[in-house]
Write a protein that binds this DNA or RNA. Structure first.
Lengths: 129, 129
DNA sequence: CTTGACTCTGTACTAAGGTACATACTTTAT
DNA sequence: ATAAAGTATGTACCTTAGTACAGAGTCAAG
């Protein structure tokens, strides 16, 4: 469960560089380098990176994850507030995409009932009159 | 309908720098600079920028818009193919977001039925066991 | 004891779509 | 005539989430 960077990167399924990137950005702390040999990453770091990856799957940005990590189960209501923010932004994106889907479907339908290849309805719809 | 850069930028509702950016990237051509005074952008350029902005609203990337512009109503079937690609990517994003919404809603519900502020179910769900 | 694999450190680069600034010049309004 | 506002040009910077690489050191196997 602990090991040098390459080992834990493979274990978690991330790039070594990603781990270094998280270190540079303060998401995880870099273990002290022993006077001899390579750094060994403790289990806690492995857990923390896994936490980050799961939170990313829920659509949290690294910035948001940073605050999740700093709250670290000490105040549930703040975490809930953050999750609600995320939800709102996801839902607004959903609405946008549905409209987009509709507009695209309409365009494509118009295109398919068009017999004149030189006057594309999609292009025409986008072009100013 | 034509004018110097500041005027048309305001007209279209984009930043002047954005227009210069489009010029640098070949999406629009830069008018010749007259020996005296400032460049004047013709109506065609205004139309072209509007086209770009509408296509962006449909979710096309600038790269895709570049090819739309080069096809420029000369081949409807290619335009349709591009629109279908866009649609597919929009639909796949929609699916992802729906799942995300579901997961977030579930997390929030758990949070709301929780009476212990010091053990947040969201954090726990994300944390490795 | 040497070769190959790994790590450390620092820096630079990527995509996408712009934004910002410094310097010099031109135009317009007063 | 002069100040304010606009433009031209080039370069640098921004965000996000990493990736790539060079050069030096270290570790493990044969």
């Amino acid at each position: 469960m602990s090991g040098t960077i390459g080992k834990i990167a493979k274990l978690i399924g991330v790039n070594k560089e990603t781990i270094r990137f998280y270190e540079r950005n303060g998401l995880i702390s870099q273990p002290q380098k022993p006077s001899e040999g390579y750094r060994v990453y403790p289990k806690e770091t492995v857990d923390r990176i896994r936490f980050i990856k799961r939170a990313q799957e829920l659509g949290f940005t690294l910035k948001e994850i940073e605050s999740l990590l700093s709250l670290n189960s000490e105040c549930c209501s703040k975490v809930e507030a953050l999750a609600k923010q995320r939800l709102a932004s996801v839902q607004s994106k959903l609405e946008d995409l549905k409209q987009l889907e509709h507009a695209l479907l309409e365009s494509i339908t118009k295109c398919q009932t068009n017999d004149d290849d030189s006057h594309c309805p999609i292009i025409n719809a986008l072009s100013p009159k």
